[in-house]
Nucleic acid binder design. Structure first.
Lengths: 239, 239
DNA sequence: CAGTGGTCTAGACCACGGG
DNA sequence: CCGTGGTCTAGACCACTGC
């Protein structure tokens, strides 16, 4: 994959920050100096610095410079779109995915509305339980329009469906809306999860869009209360 | 407040989208055309379009154009930093804030660590219950270092502390880390909230930073399970 | 093929912070 | 005052889309 110049500069600076070449609370060289050092224009340096800022590695302060942030203080921004596989790898836990359902069918009215489909469209319906350290903690219900995802197998579902869509199918996930609420546990939750005494689950509804604005996935992720954690790293935007 | 050119263009385009001048699923004029129309350079137009994209108003598609998104489909992105006051106004509900505690004190060890303070620093400790439609739903516990927020009154707490910090104190909130977990209700929750049968609360921990990277506020917002809702609009970033 | 958005350049002026 | 990051310009080339 061809990288742009500013992405390369971002990667270099990012590495230098993470290996301690630039220490927390110290300042990066100025944009002019970086432009000279990398033999590029200042606007290109600025794009790289904006990426660093968006990812929580530096803080730009007008008329003073770019301060390296202390990564340990914020942990790692697990904000935005994160798949179960990435998450469990990051947490370094033993994990397993159990596929309970995998079928093509005509969805119920509610799912049809969520996916904005016509009456006779087929969807893939996948139900998976996620086990971490021997406990079944998360129940995932996914719906994909068959038009966009013609083939889906058990082994794909046991790994990452994201990976499959992005790498094998060549689809580009562009943005997603997430909604987090708490609801009473339903039949599936009781059946497929180790809920212990808990009567409620945290429900994360995820609407995933491609870069041509079509909705390609609706997912409901149901978490046992005590194991749920969501981290958001928000930068105050202008206006 | 002096606005930049690209912010003005953002505002104009944003209005045109919201009043229907540009219809959902249609395309905006090309960047070259917009540059001519606004009598500016293309890079400036691109900054405005990037803002529109970040705010979920358009979707840029390479080699095709910028598509106007359907606002109703996503509701409004209530993502990122939102204060209780903004929220209740947006939801158009009758709401009230009850201040239970407002004192300067030496914080417990845990809060001192959260705020990264020295042993003898004083903090403001504020406890507020939030009532919506006659039910006490949210318990807010706020901690501010006295060094940064010398004065705080009951009436400020009944309105928005954010407003006070940003407008009256002239502090610029730059970014925030949010953590969402579910915990068992504690004594304060039972005392100050109408919890009904619920034994747990959704806890939103908020760490607020100024643009010089100092941590200026730690807030714990405790919500009754059934009334909690969090919406996140995430755009997949490059690399 | 022409038109699009993505990247990049080499300048420029500005507001602001600190010495 | 000088150096900083923020904004802005008028060009340029590229890869990609759709016709």
């Amino acid at each position: 994959m061809k990288q742009t110049k500013y992405q390369q500069i971002y990667n270099e600076l990012s590495s230098s920050i993470q290996d301690g070449t630039y220490k927390p609370n110290s300042k990066l060289p100025s944009e002019h100096e970086l432009a000279d050092a990398f033999g590029t224009s200042r606007e290109t340096i600025r794009k790289a610095l904006n990426l660093l800022s968006q990812n929580g590695l530096i803080q730009k302060i007008k008329a003073r410079g770019s301060v390296v942030l202390d990564l340990n203080r914020y942990e790692f921004p697990v904000s935005g779109l994160v798949s179960f596989k990435e998450l469990s790898e990051k947490m370094n836990r033993s994990s397993r995915t159990i596929v309970h359902q995998l079928e093509k069918k005509i969805p119920c009215k509610w799912v049809r509305e969520q996916l904005d489909l016509s009456d006779d469209s087929l969807v893939w319906h996948v139900v998976r339980a996620r086990e971490i350290d021997g406990e079944r903690i998360i129940l995932d219900r996914d719906y994909f329009p068959v038009d966009y995802v013609p083939e889906l197998t058990k082994s794909i579902c046991e790994n990452s469906i994201y990976d499959y869509l992005e790498n094998d199918m060549g689809l580009t996930v562009s943005y997603a809306k997430k909604e987090i609420v708490v609801e009473e546990a339903d039949e599936d939750d009781l059946l497929y999860l180790d809920l212990n005494e808990y009567k409620h689950v945290v429900v994360v509804r995820n609407y995933v869009y491609l870069n041509d604005t079509t909705l390609i996935e609706y997912t409901e992720s149901r978490h046992r209360l005590d194991k749920f954690r969501f981290v958001d790293f928000a930068r105050r935007e202008k206006q």
